[in-house]
Nucleic acid binder design. Structure first.
Lengths: 245, 245
DNA sequence: ACAAAAGTGTTCGATATACACCCATGA
DNA sequence: TCATGGGTGTATATCGAACACTTTTGT
């Protein structure tokens, strides 16, 4: 069914997850050994991406890439920016890697950036011989290729969007407490929020609906559980037309 | 200096302008005549775009495309979204056009969308045998290719951004009145604003600075002139970390 | 009984909204 | 002197920020 890969176009996916502590990203280890001695030449981390097929659209490619890694379907995927700098794959390490493993592909590649929000950290990552792990976004240093830049763009896009729209619930369990939701907002926005003021705001979000159910098995007062209703959100949202200073 | 065109990648530019009345877009007529009879087979409108060169980055390609059409350099250019639907160039008219004028290019093209804001409508458009005109965004019906979709994305991106950041001054003359600025905001946001409340907000924008100069030659009370200082803006802006319901 | 997180209200200042009249100029 | 758009202030309602104690559960 799938045909040729387009050698100049790829999709890179920034896969975000939340573990009730910090905002995390899935990264793949890229380790290159010398062909004879087997010494490690370099070892670094990349986002997950792939070239697109000729008969596949961009959203489809993003879906395929995340699905190949996590086995998940129907997840939130959003395109946020495209990257086409001339030198984006020109680091010597990148060149070595590309020559060895992707020799047929072109050195000039424009990559379309997508991000995905995962339901939780309990997903089973399909490792396929590569080491894939979650890393807290605050503890990531330099990535391979231009992936540090791509990640930064993704984070600021996510942050920007969360400020005005209810995204992010996909990183919480289907039933969540308000404290969990608050921690998510704090992790994404990188700021501490006041509990009472937070709850006052949330109580105006008609699409965050209380369930007839409480937390169980916690050694403190069990919290009320809530769910996010995209349905209610879509039906009640109104366009904002004013502007802010 | 420039080398090969990448056959699978193009950049499309949405060029916005403002004439103190409405928000406008530059569109190019695409008219196809039958080879013998010279009857018009179809005639419609497109945005302006072009494939990118192998040794040119995305921003550079966008700059080149707008410069070719307007002769302007150093204008605001911002990437907003990329378009890669399989059927985006599959309308029979598009196929006819591509076969005739761009035969060497591939039928599978991913296009990176940029928008540009022009200083005014007084720019000299380089016509190059094509008919290029400004059209009020509210009066545009169907465009060629997937350009209606691209335009819609561009408008909503512009609108979204104007609500939170001072962009759009590039569509005003360097010295402008508050009424002109208000009309711009109304045209972009698609809403009427209260004059006194608008001015109250603007007076908090330290980067909109009054000049020692007034309008001349108008048959009513001459208005105070203002300028936009990006410098002041960059120095005084603070990150917002809170969120809205 | 203790530890741990849940849950709750008020005050104060800032900001948004609604609204109407006089002013300076050119024709 | 008239037509045209420029320029201004106040009252009211709403929203954001700061802040501390009681409740419920498991151990």
């Amino acid at each position: 069914m799938e045909t040729n890969l387009l050698k100049n176009i790829s999709v890179d996916c920034v896969i975000f997850g939340f573990d009730m502590e910090s905002l995390n990203v899935l990264l793949v280890e890229r380790t290159m050994n010398a062909s004879q001695s087997n010494d490690t030449l370099f070892s670094d981390l990349t986002l997950t991406g792939h070239h697109i097929y000729e008969n596949e659209d961009l959203d489809g490619a993003a879906k395929r890439i995340v699905n190949d890694l996590t086995g998940l379907k129907n997840l939130v995927l959003e395109q946020f920016y495209s990257f086409g700098e001339l030198d984006r794959l020109q680091h010597p390490n990148d060149q070595l890697w590309i020559d060895q493993f992707e020799g047929a592909l072109d050195k000039r590649v424009v990559s379309i950036g997508y991000y995905s929000l995962l339901p939780s950290l309990n997903v089973n990552i399909k490792q396929k011989g590569r080491v894939v792990k979650w890393y807290p976004v605050n503890e990531i240093s330099e990535l391979a290729y231009d992936h540090t830049f791509i990640l930064e763009k993704a984070i600021s896009h996510l942050r920007y969007k969360l400020r005005y729209e209810p995204i992010g619930f996909e990183m919480l369990p289907p039933k969540f407490t308000l404290s969990q939701m608050q921690k998510l907002y704090e992790a994404v926005l990188g700021v501490e929020l006041d509990k009472r003021n937070f709850r006052k705001k949330v109580s105006q979000m008609t699409y965050v609906v209380p369930l007839n159910e409480k937390q169980k098995g916690v050694s403190h007062k069990p919290a009320q559980l809530f769910m996010f209703s995209r349905d209610v959100y879509e039906k009640t949202k109104t366009e904002r037309y004013d502007f802010f200073v």
